[in-house]
Amino acid sequence: MAPSRALTRLTLLRRAPSSALRRYHSYDHPAPAGIFNASEQAILSAAYKHVPEHGFTQHALSLGARDAGYLDISTNVVPEGPFSLIRYHLVTQREALAPRREAIFSKDANAATTVPARVERLTWERLLGNRDVNHRWQEALAIMAQPSHVPASFHELALLADEIHFLAGDTSVDPSWYTKRGGLSVIYASSELFMTNDRSPGFGDTRAFLQRRLAEGGSLSNAVGGVTQWLGFTASAGVNVLRSKGVRI
């Protein structure tokens, strides 16, 4: 009995993140409802205004509930407490990128012509979304690193990396689809951490950090691509030489 229950729990756990993985995106049919329902949305959006002052805390949630016209106790409808508030920040900031895409690229059209340049621009734009809560972000990272919140946090990171590549117009359909998104996730997470200690005006140091990391990633992928291309060329040239010698392969 016990092992089977453990097994179902394990499959449930494994299914939980995969059920929310990236799925078919329709242009004609309306999008499904977001992850927050109406009352959660009301409380969280009101509580979010208190974050710069009170941080991602239960206190901010209660203040938000009161502002939205609910009782203090109604923060119970937000099951994960402060983590829901963090998630609200992540989701709203991610969803805010798509409508701003045109504005972002029309501002400096000359700089963002290639996909990597657009990825850099969008990632920077997303980092700037942390501006108002940056002084509270280390607390948020600590909450996100709690074991029960780790899968959801990684999932949000993956969604962000995918969103940025989609908006940047990336059209890779081979294993580079995975390496690009994985690489950007790592770079974004480290830049975000760097930003929490950045005191430079306009977070200039963070942007330089981000650009250095992206350049390193780019040169690494160039090197790997070059080696792969050389290997493929040598192999096919070898086969062709053998064929020209009359070997029937």
Partner: peptide, 14 residues
């Protein structure tokens, strides 16, 4: 009107 895709339909399509 057009109906939003259910989770199963989106899974199937992807």
């Amino acid at each position: 009107p057009r109906k939003p895709l259910t989770k199963e339909q989106r899974d199937f399509l992807s």
